[in-house]
């Protein structure tokens, strides 16, 4: 599995703008956004703004860096659920 990250700016209606579109084999699987200084202790960390398919999780953790975020996304994608 190869994840590709594409930098993009997102209009979240807040100061959180710096973002990455995350693609797996050319398909968009997630949107990550870097949290601004408004988020105190989480400033600079990455938030799963949107996840698609298996990556969707309203209670996803906040990631310290992009490497951690990608590892989590890869785990979600690899987690084969027999009900699918």
């Amino acid at each position: 599995m190869t994840l590709k990250l594409q930098p993009v700016q997102i209009a979240t209606g807040s100061n959180d703008r710096e973002s990455r579109l995350v693609f797996e084999d050319g398909r968009l699987v997630a949107v990550l956004v870097q949290l601004s200084s408004e988020h105190d202790s989480h400033a600079g960390h990455w938030f799963l703004e949107a996840g698609f398919g298996r990556v969707e999780d309203p209670h996803a953790p906040i990631f310290a860096d992009l490497r951690e975020a990608q590892a989590w996304i890869a785990r979600q994608l690899a987690d084969v659920d027999p009900s699918y």
Binding site: G13, H39, P58
Partner: peptide, 12 residues
């Protein structure tokens, strides 16, 4: 909502 969305809304 996520904590992030709550924080954004409060800031707004």
């Amino acid at each position: 909502l996520s904590n992030v969305h709550v924080n954004r809304s409060l800031q707004e």
